[in-house]
Design a protein around this nucleic acid. Structure first.
Lengths: 237, 237
DNA sequence: GAGTGGTCTAGACCACCCT
DNA sequence: GGGTGGTCTAGACCACTCA
């Protein structure tokens, strides 16, 4: 028995996981250390190998540990760090601030796809696109401008939808619930279009999220979300 | 048997998972649909309940499905969307562009913690802090300015470390490998300090990441990373 | 109360890959 | 070749929560 684990509790993959994690975080098992095998740990903790297996699998998913057959499980030298951001529905995000959520459709037009946007949506030149500009506010304070393009080739029923009362996001979630998404975050300069809506001056820095959505391999919609002054996206991990 | 699944393959939680996912994404099992129970699915797929269980657990973790005892498993109305960003080491990030990674220590000073920063690090007024300003470049092109504060109360050995050749990140990863982290992303205006380093004009918008790191409940370091023009953080999910 | 998911066990076989 | 993780099974008991 090379390990000096304290099998204070029996069973439960959570117990095993917590023990091992503590040991690593405290430095007792430093980077590159090869951990005892599953059978040995199972004996140490007095549980089945499957239980240890699940604990270790989860630690591996969290990037703390790295596993390979035959080589065994070792503590990662550079922990694989991953931040997770839940992608909130604007409405919920604003509601969480305690302010009432307000929505307004600012502009709506149908136009022909062209240039970069057409490429982004994988459209043939001239294909029709529905463009919507919306404002989401927290009470009286503007929160986010949504500038959205929807491919009418992919989603013709969007042409008839009423976006004056409800945000396109909510309609889209119902229409295309499970899709593939690419998001980017970047800093930009507030332009003359969004500035007035956000009560900001042209030239101020704004935090922008861009999102393109595909469904079954076909581009559905692209959106540019420009946030009001002072916006931060925060997470812990 | 209410399901008409096609148990084309036997066993394997991956097969079960893929089948169920396809069914949901295609719309055959729409939002709010209650899926068949584990025992039924196990019979359908001709495998053990544990196998189905694992498949469903993973789908739940991915936010596609929601499970409750007694109530069963149902398709989420609003898919719980989570974007994951791997937190890259700058060096790797730059190396991936094909350019050589270059590092330069711009400034180093020891000062007394004060104001917002002291609070952020949970320091008593007057506690010593090591402040480092570094520049990371992709070949000749500046990439990111790192403005870092390290609590000397928490990590006294940082005072003696040599940061002229290697970035503090690498030293810190070795010193405090597993820690708790809070990150924020925001848009800011390029200031007079970082502007020249990034070959940017004061007033240009910059993408900023701020990160605070704790170890065993104690704040260790805080860093502000200011990215050069055109930086985007992108992910798919 | 009863039905669902949540977890554990003991045993088995397999796939990979280091030595 | 052999040792490690990866997965599956069959059965069991438990915990939660809905009706």
């Amino acid at each position: 028995m090379t390990t000096a684990a304290t099998p204070s509790d029996k069973g439960s993959f959570r117990v095993v996981k917590a023990h091992v994690r503590t040991r690593i975080e405290s430095g007792a098992w430093g980077p590159e250390t090869v951990l005892p095998g599953e059978v040995e740990l199972a004996a140490t903790f007095g549980c089945a190998r499957a239980t240890v297996s699940r604990a270790m699998r989860e630690l591996a998913e969290e990037g703390i540990v790295e596993r390979r057959r035959k080589a065994g499980t070792r503590v990662r030298a550079v922990p694989l760090r991953e931040a997770r951001f839940s992608i909130p529905i604007v409405r919920d995000q604003i509601a969480a601030t305690g302010n009432p959520y307000r929505y307004r459709l600012v502009a709506r037009e149908v136009l022909a796809a062209a240039g970069r946007l057409g490429q982004r949506l994988g459209l043939e030149p001239g294909a029709e696109v529905l463009r919507l500009t919306c404002l989401h506010s927290a009470g009286p304070a503007p929160w986010q401008v949504e500038d959205r393009w929807i491919s009418l080739a992919a989603l013709p029923q969007a042409a008839g939808a009423d976006f004056t009362r409800h945000a396109p996001t909510e309609w889209l979630i119902a229409a295309v619930p499970y899709s593939q998404v690419e998001v980017s975050f970047l800093a930009a300069t507030c332009d003359a279009r969004t500035g007035p809506l956000l009560a900001m001056n042209a030239g101020e820095p704004v935090f922008v999220a861009e999102r393109t959505t595909w469904w079954q391999g076909r581009a559905i919609t692209h959106v540019r979300l420009t946030h009001a002054r002072g916006y931060r996206m925060t997470t812990r991990y």
